[in-house]
Design a protein around this nucleic acid. Sequence first.
DNA 1: TCAAACTTTCAAAAAATATTGAAAGATTAA
DNA 2: TTAATCTTTCAATATTTTTTGAAAGTTTGA
Lengths: 167, 167
Amino acid sequence: MNYDEAKNKFISTWGSLGTLWGINKAMAQIHALLLISPESLSMEDIMEQLQISRGNTSMNLRQLMDWGIVFKENKMGERKEYFTSEKDVQELARQIAKERSRRELQPTIKILKDVSNIDEDGTAKTKELIKQTKALHEMADTLDILMNRVIGQDHNWITKALVKLIK
Amino acid sequence: MNYDEAKNKFISTWGSLGTLWGINKAMAQIHALLLISPESLSMEDIMEQLQISRGNTSMNLRQLMDWGIVFKENKMGERKEYFTSEKDVQELARQIAKERSRRELQPTIKILKDVSNIDEDGTAKTKELIKQTKALHEMADTLDILMNRVIGQDHNWITKALVKLIK
DNA sequence: TCAAACTTTCAAAAAATATTGAAAGATTAA
DNA sequence: TTAATCTTTCAATATTTTTTGAAAGTTTGA
C-alpha cells in the first residue's frame, strides 16, 4: 500500500465510522483529512481533495469547530482562512467524550429522571416502567460521572484508566 | 405525568437515542417497549402499540435478536411467537459493548494497523499519516482491551469500575 | 395431503438526511 | 466608495435509509 492508497483508505474508513459517533460522512472525512495533514488547509484545498461542494465544506467545518476539534488559522498576508484539527488523539477523545456527554447523555438523564418519577399506582406495568427507567437512570448517571472523571484527567488518561482497571 | 405519557416519552426518547448507538428508530423503540413490558409481547402487540408494519417489526426483531438483547419465547398451546428483552440493564450494556467492539472497533483496528504500516518515505505527509494512524491504533487497542476487561466482569461492573477510577 | 395460522422476504414508496451551487453577506485594500 | 476576495446561507436536488404491504415461505394439526 502506497501513501495515496493509505490516505484514501484512512479517510474513507474514518468517514463511514463517523456515522457511529454521530457525525456525518463529509464531516468525518474533513476531520480525517485535517488530522493527517502536516499543514493547515484552506477551504479550496479541502473541496478539491474530498471532491465536495463549497457549501458542504463550509457547514461541516463549522460543526467541527463547534465540537472543538477543528480550528481556524489565519496566515499573515493572506485573506483566506486555513483549518487544522486537534492533533493529539487523546485530547481529541477527551473533547469528543465531553461533547457527547453534554449533547446526549445529560439530556437523556433528565428524561429518565422525569419518567422514573411518575406515581406508583400498584399495577405491574407501572412498577416495571419505574424499575427499568430507574435502573437506566442510575447507569447513565454513573457513566456520566465516570466520563467526566476521565475527561478531567491528564493526557495519558486512557492508559492510566486501563492500568487501574486491570489491577 | 401519568403512565401513558411516561411510557410514550420513554419509548420515543429511546427511539431517537438509538441512532447514536447505531441502531434505527423502530429497532430502538421495539427494544424500549419490550424493556418496560412485564409480559412478553407478540408481533401483533408490537405492531399495534408502535403503529408499525409487520415487515418492519419482523426485520427489527431479528436484528435485536442478533444483538443478543431480545429473545423469542413460545407459549404452550400457542403457535404465535412472543418476545422479551434482556431486563438486566447492566447485562444489556455488556452485551451492547461486546457487539460494538466486534462490529466496529475490531474492524477499525485492523484498518488502522494496515494504514500505519505503509513504508516511511521521508516526506512530511507520510510521517504525519503514520504518526496519527499509529496513535489512533494504539488508542483503539487500549479501548478494546478496556471494554473487554469490563465485559468480562460481573454484574456490578459499572459501579466497580467507577470506584476504581475514583480511588 | 390440505388449509389455517403465523413469519419472512423484498421491490416499491416514503421519509429522512446530506449535498449542491448560486445568491447574499462579509471583509479588506485601494 | 468600489471592487475584489472570500465565506455563509438556504432552497432545490440527490442520496441514503427506513418503512410498507403483499406475496412467498414455514409450521402445525386434522
